[in-house]
Write a protein that binds this DNA or RNA. Structure first.
Length: 598
RNA sequence: GCGGUCGUAGCUCAGCUGGAUAGAGUACUUGACUACGAAUCAAGUGGUCGGAGGUUCGAAUCCUCCCGUCCGCACCA
């Protein structure tokens, strides 16, 4: 449940609800028809700062009072004005109240904005505010990479989304467990091992074994496709079956090779997660649930809960337009859905979670509909608490990426290219001035900002066309733009030895750019909470970009070093510091670091 | 064929749980560094919100149909 966490909105809604409830009673309506929460929710941003800093839309109130919204706005605005005139606290905080059509526009005083917004930012209180209560314990599963294949830029979108969702929800007060589900069994493994064993002539490298293994898979797959229709085809199939049997039996030469090569891939995953500052509370491997999932499904079969069709076993959902959910192949082995059914139960049982989120690309929409439906039909009550958070995939300018075909941009290539680009195009100017270590660290941080922001800024339902040339352009709406603004703030604060604990007079802030920036900072927690609960990190991205832009305007319009008075200088520094705090916290919720300088 | 996604400025996208004059970036045109950091700022050009109906005091937003796009639809994961 969402709380009234934003102090200025809370103040306004508490004042308004008293007036509204009096009107309701006067009109013969129960005052409980509307709560302070209803008023809080009806507070919106005016279209521009000239109108006000906060607006109350009178639509619902008007409906309850059975009057026209503009009439209600007039009435309530007048009453609120009277209230402000009489109340010392309100008088100090609210500068004006004006009805405009169905809206009541409220402007705050500089000291109001400063007391309620800047001060909690300076003390850090804003970031400790309790935003929600009684939230469900949730598990978020994201990043389901296959071993024996190479991680590519497509995987990055999933990782960024999942990690941001975890961070945003935790900040918002949710108890979140992060899990990953790597695919370490299946035909792709067999194909990879087959190629290694029979066709590979290279020696195994000392470094980056995971990437090399991914190449083995690609080559194997291409060769197998080439040999379709040739005398080798039958032989290949036989060998692949042999390999899979050994893996299942957990015994034999291929099993040993699997154990060894699997580690190489896991090492690559860990390197990438480490680069991205991602930590999982739980790693579920497909090999862990594989055999149990088949047992579970066979138990359901024995209980008569499943049906046979064309020699295979599953559930028929054609009436729900979900097709046939296949759970046991005609050879008695399981499938992806089989494992997901087992895993879904484990998650709820292992961790007593109340909600289970799956971040998987939208091509799996039918799969998850089937799995959740199957869980429901099989009597698993928590099926209703499972949610597939889908996103559109990343493709290349010339079409879909496929590690099967080998036309991928490996993640390591993206990371290295971006880092080198940042170092040579931007950081080279600090050569001699900065240590090599600092250049390297900052290049990494900026590269991370560019990549993560790029993956997150686009809403989940739109596909991303990945073009390295476009991605290395770092101006405009980009992570580095925001990081750069923050670095400038750092440099300002350092130059003028700003002390966040020192007193300052917020009422001297009167420039339009100052007020607009303060008004914007007010919305941080509201935006974060919305981004978290709607699983939309993109909305925080655009908020932070706006923050940086509004800061840049302020920075341009309002000189600090040469401010007219020492008080104004101090207050402007406090505003700069507050903005920096918002940017740092905001970016950290997206998993993006802020370099001290860049 | 069935189901789903998307369609907003030349291009890439916000806005979509209905509300004030549809916004950014980019590209293009111009202006601002002897200055608190130009990875910046300021100004301008650019829109039948895919089309047609409907619901509503009010629709880019909700509903229906149509067009276009991409994706999925049993023994891969």
């Amino acid at each position: 449940m969402t709380l009234l966490h934003e102090p200025l909105r809370k103040l306004v809604s508490q004042s308004l609800i008293t007036l509204i409830q009096a009107q309701l009673e006067a009109g013969g309506v129960s005052k409980d028809t509307m709560s302070v929460g209803d008023v809080y929710k009806a507070l919106v941003d005016p279209p521009n700062a000239e109108l006000g800093h906060l607006a109350f839309g009178c639509f619902i109130t008007a409906k309850n009072l059975k009057k026209g919204p503009p009439v209600v706005a007039q009435l309530l605005a007048q009453e609120l004005k009277n209230e402000v005139a009489q109340n010392i606290v309100l008088k100090k905080t609210i500068a004006s109240v004006e009805a405009a059509g169905p809206y009541i526009n409220i402007k705050f005083t500089a000291s109001g904005l400063s007391d309620y917004i800047l001060k909690p930012l300076l003390s850090g209180e804003t970031f400790k505010a309790q935003l929600t209560e009684a939230t469900p314990k949730m598990m978020i599963e994201y990043s389901q990479p296959n071993t024996h294949k190479e991680l590519h830029v497509g995987h990055m979108r999933n990782m960024c989304l999942g990690d941001a969702a975890v961070r945003l929800l935790r900040y918002s007060g949710y108890n979140i467990l992060a899990s990953t589900f790597p695919g370490d069994v299946g035909t792709h493994v067999a194909k990879c091992l087959w190629y290694m064993k029979f066709h590979n002539k290279e020696s195994i490298p000392m470094m980056n074994k995971g990437a090399w293994l991914g190449a083995m898979y690609s080559k194997g797959n291409l060769l197998l496709e080439d040999q379709v229709g040739t005398p080798q085809e039958d032989e290949n199939r036989k060998v692949l079956t042999d390999i899979l049997k050994q893996l299942e039996a957990k015994n034999g030469e291929y099993y040993d090779l699997w154990k060894q090569t699997r580690e190489w891939s896991i090492e690559l995953m860990k390197d990438v997660y480490n680069w991205a500052d991602i930590k999982f509370d739980q790693w579920y491997f497909e090999s862990d649930v594989d055999s149990d999932s088949v047992k579970t499904v066979k138990k359901y079969l024995a209980e008569g809960k499943l049906v046979e069709s064309q020699g295979a076993i599953g559930l028929d959902f054609s009436e729900e337009n979900l097709g046939f959910c296949l759970l046991l192949k005609s050879d008695g082995t399981g499938l992806y859905a089989t494992k997901d059914i087992e895993l879904a139960r484990r998650k709820f049982e292992d961790y007593k979670i109340e909600k289970s989120i799956y971040i998987v690309d939208q091509r799996q929409a039918l799969h998850f509909k089937q799995v959740f439906k199957a869980l429901e039909v099989l009597g698993f009550e928590q099926a209703k608490d499972c949610y597939h958070l889908q996103y559109n995939f990343v493709e290349l300018p010339d079409g879909a990426m496929s590690s099967r075909k080998g036309n991928i941009v490996p993640l390591t290539t993206l990371i290295e290219t971006m880092k080198t680009h940042v170092a040579t195009e931007y950081l080279a100017r600090y050569k001699g001035e900065w240590t090599e270590t600092e250049v390297d660290t900052v290049a990494g941080q900026v590269a991370k900002g560019a990549i993560k922001y790029g993956m997150l800024k686009q809403d989940t339902n739109k596909k991303i066309v990945f073009d390295m040339n476009e991605w290395t352009k770092l101006d405009g709406e980009s992570g580095p733009f925001i990081q750069y603004s923050c670095a400038r703030i750092n440099s300002l604060l350092k130059k003028f030895s700003f002390d966040a604990k020192a007193e300052f007079a917020g009422e001297v802030l009167s420039h339009a750019s100052e007020l607009k920036l303060m008004q914007h900072l007010m919305n941080f927690n509201t935006v974060v909470l919305g981004a978290a609960e709607n699983y939309k990190p993109a909305s925080l991205c655009s908020y932070l970009y706006d923050t940086a832009k509004k800061f840049n305007t302020f920075y341009h319009d309002c000189p600090i070093g040469t401010a007219e008075t020492p008080d104004l200088k101090k207050a402007r520094l406090a505003l700069a510091y507050s903005t920096g705090a918002i940017i740092k916290h905001g970016l950290s919720l997206l998993g993006i670091p802020t370099p001290e300088r860049m």
